[in-house]
Each structure stands twice: as structure tokens, then as C-alpha cells.
Design a protein around this nucleic acid. Structure first.
Lengths: 344, 344
DNA sequence: CTGAAAGCGCTTACAG
DNA sequence: CTGAAAGCGCTTACAG
């Protein structure tokens, strides 16, 4: 390896070596003021040689900014990472933030017990903003927002809370799924989602109905089934429908887990997928890939989600007057074996 | 909710309200010097009322400490969190660090490409120490250590690199497993682990041999099978052994994943578990619980791992002269249906 | 028991 | 183009 030069940890030492003032070093490093090329190149070379980067505590104190953003999970990091989906978003976010010189602080804040209390590090002024990853109870979001720190919701959204957010376009996704199913000949299509409040699900429901209307399908046959809280109830509800005259030939599930469970239950009951019924999932999780047959689903661009989220929160920090920001990422349909023409 | 009092963000404002000097406020908050109870109570009440906590940039600059520790993953956070095991350790760690006023900074450092370069935030002096979670190539550990920042390995260990670490006691675990199997009557017991370098596996192997010796079992029958890099090779190797005179009646696998895969392969070949062969796993992962029959395994106390890790790294930060620290956590055997007496 | 002052490492008007 | 000086919010000897 190369001989590591002495470690330098203050601008003063650099100034001494470069034989100039600390102001000139600072200006050079921050691309400010007019510095002669000669002096500038010399300073840069010295900093590089010694691996010098301005001390963050000094710089932050003066600039009243931390280049650090808090990352919160709900209800806990372990719970959210059971879904690798979120770990991947976190990683994309982290890479993007790092590229802009920002770091991510984990929130050890246990949201379960202190719902609307900001985490300690916020009170200490350690973070310039908070990113809330996934779905949170609204009072938690409101609590942080009320504290005065910029808040961004990543892959989550709640009406009437004015914070920046980026989600995926579930509305368009469901429209496209219906379009696809109609093209295959389906006329009795249903959407299935858990009953509990969930803005993502609501958006997708709206997209579903919008497409149903566009294709002038019967609103009696094409319904949104949301009278259940768990898979068991979901299947009971579905079964009632299957025994009626308006039996669906295609199901759009709110996520891959539900899709996979419904598929299994149907198969156990003697239905053949996709010959009897087509099934669509959402998320491109392992659930849809491991199912047999593999389930068609919707892929979310996690890298892009992280990138856009990072850009949004940095913008908010560096230009606080920016009007409320929000973005809905386009998604991709993944076609697999769980979808076919309806039975004749 | 209560009327939130005006937000205060400097010790000066507190001093003004309390009608004393900032030195007195600081001393009170830090439990230093002699302050009259009266003044002290007043200051504390004011701070509490306004939710005041000393600004971390100011305090850190002065104390030359950050109350922040970097957390690194290898090869990436997404990769490591596929094993929920690590998310749980991270959470336990986070809670414990927070309880001591420390925060965790995610390392966006992509270890894959800059093996021995410290992450940017270290150069900026943002972190007081680095925790490396899981297994890392030794040059990565050495690279960070050489930079001069305290390093701790959590659930990992490499010989000849002098850093603090906490691991689980795989040696004792394997001793106990062998004890248990011998008690059931097994005499032909083998240990199976992947060939690649892995200190955890080596420790467990040593525990295995130690117990074999203690029980005076044949070293020809009780061997460590490590001539494979994947499950397929593992099973080929095992099969050769099963066809020999020294066929094992019990297998101790290096982890639950391998145990589950071996069990499936054996069953596919007509073996009955545990009637023909007993199997032990390690980690208490979902793999062992979802297997049929459920596989006996070893549970690691993740909360304790996080707690001990936090204590160690904080000690190192606050008292750098502390001699090298290391600790091996005791583990618990989880008995399930994959283990029984050997066939007669 | 309390406070005035120095200084941690920076950035930023400002003067020259 | 360059530098001297102020000040960000703290803590810590030190004086009284």
C-alpha cells in the first residue's frame, strides 16, 4: 500500500502547510470566492494527500446544518425489514444521500410507546430532516412535523398532512392491470384489499374503478372486496362471490402475499390457476415468485424511489421555502403464469 | 394536548430565563460542579418545560466527541437484512445505544468497491467508533482500524486483528449438542460446514471435536465434513458417507439453512427424519421452524448481543485505554422433532 | 456556589 | 485575490 501521510484534522494545519489563511482553504474547499489557480491547486493537492475533509462538527455548528437525516421505521426496524423490499429502499436511499454528502441516522425511537414525541436526536438538533419509511400512524407524522423539522414520507402517504412524499403510482398500475385483463377477455374482475385504512390501497382501488368505468364493465360484477381483515376472512368472502352468478374470472390482490394465499386456498378447493381464475399481485415480492404457478405482479423501482426521495429531502433542507413536493413513481407490470384468458 | 411552550435552542436563552450564567446551566445539565439545589431545580424545570437538550454540534465540537457510532454491513444492508436475524440485532443495538445517548449512523460505504477505505463520514470526524455487523473480509476491518477509529465486530471475529468483538459461543453450543446426542445413544455423529474460511464455523468445529474426545468416540466415525461449497456438493459428500460403514446417525449442521436443505434431500432419498437420522441446525431461523419435521437448533440471544455490543463500544469510546475487549455469549439449545434416538 | 473567558473547527461577511 | 476577525453553541479550567 501507499505510505499514509500524517493524518491532519484541522483546516489550520492545512493552511500552515499551504502557507495561506484558513479562510482561503475554506473558500477553496467550498468553491467560493476567487482563488488563484495556483493557490487553489496547491491546497487541493495537500488536502487530497492527507485525506483531509473538513470536520463536520465545526462546519455544522457554523452553518447550522448537519448533513444528517434521521430515518424512522414503524413499528420497528426489525418488523419492517421482514419485508426485504424496505431494506432495498433504505440502501438505495443511503447510496443517494451519501453521494450528496448526507448521512442517515437510525431512529432508535420506539414509535410504539411515544407516538408523537420526536426522537432525542431531533431535540439535540442532530438531524436536518426526517424520512419516515413506510406507513405510519398519522399522529406520529404530525408529531414530528409539529416539531418543526422537515418530514418526508417514503412509500407512504396520508391525506391532510402537509409533508413531502413519494409513493408509487398504484392508481396507474391498477388501470393497466384492468386494461390487460380486459384485453384477454375478462369481464368479471374484482379487486381485493384488507379493510383497514391504507392510502396505498385506496389509490389502487380508485385506479381499478376508473378502468372499470373506462371499459364500461358492469359495476355489479366488478367490485372491490374489502370486508376482511385477514386471509381467512378474505377467502370466505371470495368464496361467497364464487358461488354467486357474478363469479369473477380475475382477481387483483392488493399485494403478493394476499395473492399467493388466495391462490393456494383456491387450489386447495380444486380451482385451477389460471385456467379457472386469473390472479394478479403487487410488489414483486418473493411471495409471487415462489408461488406455483408464479404470480403476475407489479414491480416497484426501489432504486428510483430512493433516488427521488433523497433528492426531495435534500431540496427541502437546502431550500426550505420549496413548495410541498410529491411524486408518484411509475411502475412496471410483470407478466407470469397466473394470468390467462377467462374460461369459456 | 398540552400547550407547547416556545422552542428554545441555546443554552444562552435558558441562562437568561433562569437568570444565571451559561456555565451554571451547562454544569447543571452535566451534573458537574456544585450548584445550589434552588438554582439547579429551577434550571432543570425550565429545560424540561421547553424540551431543551444541548445542541449536539456545539457540544460535540467542544468535547471532540460525537455521541454517534457508524454501523457497517457487508456486502450491503439489503444483503444482510435478507437474514432478519441481523435486523433484530441492529434493533437491539440501536435501543441500547439510544439509552446511553448515542446514535447510529448508517454506512453508505459500499464495501465491495472500496474495500479498505474508511467511509466519508469517518474522514469528517462524524463518528466516534465503527461497529461492523456480521462477517467482513479482513482487509476491510484492518482498513478501518488503521484509520485510527475504534472498531468493534458484532457477531463476527477474525484472528490476529486486534479489535473488540462479541460473538456467540459456538464452541460451547456444539459441545452441548454432542453431549445431548451421546446421551440419546448416538455414536456416529458428524459436523457439516461449508469449506470457505469462516471463524464461526471453525469455533463450532473445535467444540465438536472437543466433545467427541471427551466422550471417547471414534474419530474415524465422528468427522467434520467440510469438502463442499454448496448444498448440492454437501449432499453428495454426505451420501458417500451414508453408503460407507461409518454412516452417521446424527448430523450437526453449521446453520439452519443447511440443516433444512440436507433434511429435504435425505427425505427425497427415502430417509426418515429423525427415525433414520437426527439433524441439528443453528441460529433458530425460520428455516428450522418451517421444516417438516421442525429442526432442533441453537438460539442466539440477539437482545443480549446488542446490549453487550453497545456497552463494549461505549466503553471503548469513553475510556480508550481499555484493554482489548471480547465476549462470547452463551446460547440455548432448542429441542424439536428432528432429533431422536439412533435406529437400532 | 457562580460567572467571565477561552476555545473546539469551521464559514462568512468584510476590508484591503 | 487574500486574510483578520467574528461567531455558531457548547464545556471547562479558573478566579472569585
Amino acid at each position: 500500500m501507499t505510505n499514509t501521510p500524517t493524518k491532519i484534522n484541522s483546516i489550520k494545519e492545512i493552511a500552515k502547510i499551504a502557507n495561506c489563511s484558513i479562510a482561503t482553504v475554506s473558500n477553496t474547499l467550498n468553491n467560493k470566492g476567487r482563488i488563484s489557480k495556483e493557490v487553489r491547486d496547491n491546497i487541493l493537492a495537500i488536502c487530497k494527500k492527507h485525506g483531509y475533509l473538513p470536520n463536520s462538527a465545526g462546519r455544522n455548528l457554523r452553518r447550522r446544518r448537519n448533513e444528517t437525516v434521521g430515518l424512522m421505521f414503524y413499528p420497528s426496524s426489525a418488523a419492517i425489514f421482514r419485508n426485504v423490499f424496505y431494506a432495498e429502499i433504505m440502501e438505495a436511499l443511503e447510496i443517494e444521500m451519501d453521494a450528496h454528502g448526507y448521512d442517515l441516522l437510525l431512529s432508535g425511537h420506539n414509535s410504539e410507546y411515544n407516538s408523537n414525541q420526536p426522537p432525542r436526536f431531533l431535540l439535540q438538533g442532530k438531524a436536518d430532516a426526517i424520512i419516515m419509511l413506510g406507513r405510519f400512524p398519522r399522529e406520529h407524522i404530525q408529531g414530528i412535523k409539529d416539531f418543526g423539522t422537515p418530514v418526508m414520507q417514503l412509500d407512504g402517504y396520508r391525506k391532510k398532512i402537509e409533508v413531502d412524499y413519494v409513493t408509487t403510482d398504484g392508481f396507474a398500475a391498477n388501470e393497466q392491470i384492468v386494461d390487460h385483463l380486459v384485453r384477454l377477455g375478462h369481464r368479471n374482475i374484482i379487486f381485493m384489499a384488507y379493510a383497514h385504512e391504507d392510502t396505498n390501497a385506496s389509490q389502487r382501488e380508485k385506479g381499478f374503478f376508473s378502468a372499470i368505468e373506462k371499459h364500461q364493465l358492469s359495476k355489479k360484477s366488478c367490485i372491490s372486496l374489502r370486508d376482511f381483515d385477514n386471509t381467512n376472512e378474505a377467502y370466505q368472502s371470495l368464496k361467497r362471490l364464487l358461488n354467486s352468478k357474478r363469479a369473477p374470472t380475475a382477481i387483483i390482490a392488493v399485494n403478493d402475499t394476499l395473492a399467493a394465499e388466495i391462490q393456494q386456498a383456491l387450489q386447495a378447493d380444486g380451482f385451477s390457476i389460471p385456467a379457472d381464475i386469473s390472479i394478479f399481485g403487487f410488489n414483486d415480492d418473493t411471495d409471487s415468485r415462489q408461488a406455483n404457478p408464479q404470480i403476475s405482479t407489479v414491480r416497484i423501482n426501489k432504486q428510483l424511489l430512493g433516488k427521488v426521495g433523497a433528492a426531495m429531502v435534500i431540496k427541502r433542507i437546502e431550500k426550505p421555502s420549496t413548495p410541498l413536493q410529491s411524486f408518484s413513481l411509475p411502475v412496471d407490470l410483470i407478466h407470469r403464469e397466473s394470468v390467462a384468458k377467462p374460461p369459456r
